[in-house]
Design a protein around this nucleic acid. Sequence first.
DNA 1: TCGCAATAGTTGACGGTGCAACTATTTGCG
DNA 2: CGCAAATAGTTGCACCGTCAACTATTGCGA
Lengths: 179, 179
Amino acid sequence: MDFDFEYDDSLAALRALAEVRHRIWAALDRELQTREKISMTWFEVLGSLLQNDEGALPMHELASSLLSSPSGMTRLVDRIERAGLVRRTAHPSDRRVTLVTITEPGRALVERVMPEIKRVAVEGFASRLSAKQARDLRSILEQLLQDTGGIDSDETRAVEDGPTKRRKFARSPRAAVRS
Amino acid sequence: MDFDFEYDDSLAALRALAEVRHRIWAALDRELQTREKISMTWFEVLGSLLQNDEGALPMHELASSLLSSPSGMTRLVDRIERAGLVRRTAHPSDRRVTLVTITEPGRALVERVMPEIKRVAVEGFASRLSAKQARDLRSILEQLLQDTGGIDSDETRAVEDGPTKRRKFARSPRAAVRS
DNA sequence: TCGCAATAGTTGACGGTGCAACTATTTGCG
DNA sequence: CGCAAATAGTTGCACCGTCAACTATTGCGA
């Protein structure tokens, strides 16, 4: 269990990670705010919907893929729906499910702003890394996201290079922070 | 300047980064919540203070290093102070500055949980990466955090927004989304 | 088939956070 | 020196997001 990270460095890595994410997110937020008066969070919802062929997703899928709680997503979709960018529709077979469907204005907005958003994202990542670093970062992030299925005690940390394609997300239980 | 990241992959990288951060943060939050009934945010404040020799830092330094706004930090310190873990003290020479000083209970708390916190952080990072990957991650993050000075080269933003101050990079204007 | 657990979503209450505006203090420059 | 600009911090206000509790629907095992 001895790696290049010192014991303390894992906490430092968390901070660095948070800061990188924060900066790029803020840059994208600024871009969206000045161009379209929407937030990055809204854009993430609209983008997720567009990535799906039907332009629609159940509430709970949106919530989990965007790291939000169900109630948070309810309110977020409330606001985006009030702005006319999405619409709640019924699921054809499961009446528990509410589908969120992107509207034409929503689709237009995303397509209008996507080029600049990609540009700013690239500016934050790709343009600052070498080809090898970009590859490395990708595989490192994928590895960090690999499920360890419950509380693992596995020392099966054998060297397994190569881009593992497998991608299965476990829900991350939100902390219940009081006061 | 073409790299391995496809154009779209920079947005994907941002999501992966966010998810890694989110998972580890949540794990630490859970640990702190069950052991000491405090949040990771509180721990970050206390930890920052302890890292400084004097166990004290000005409000604005805490705010910027913890990615918070000044007003957010005011309220956060309000709550932590109410819990008796920090104390506001006067700066000896600059009377504009409020120093936040860790109290003895605060120091004790951090020292009490630090081993477990480090363990969980290592579990999130170091234990899942090879030595080389850990090195790579460190240098990649450092590189991504290097300031490129002023950003946007296009000054086409002469709209009606009035004299919006050109921000350096530090502040993150969270989206002010209406409705 | 019945009944209970699991799943999906919403709402009430509330904590946390940001921006704009304001006060207090310090700094810089003519 | 004198005063405008910059810096530090707080507060008003509104918003965002979470948990707990609740309803509705579906799945599943006896």
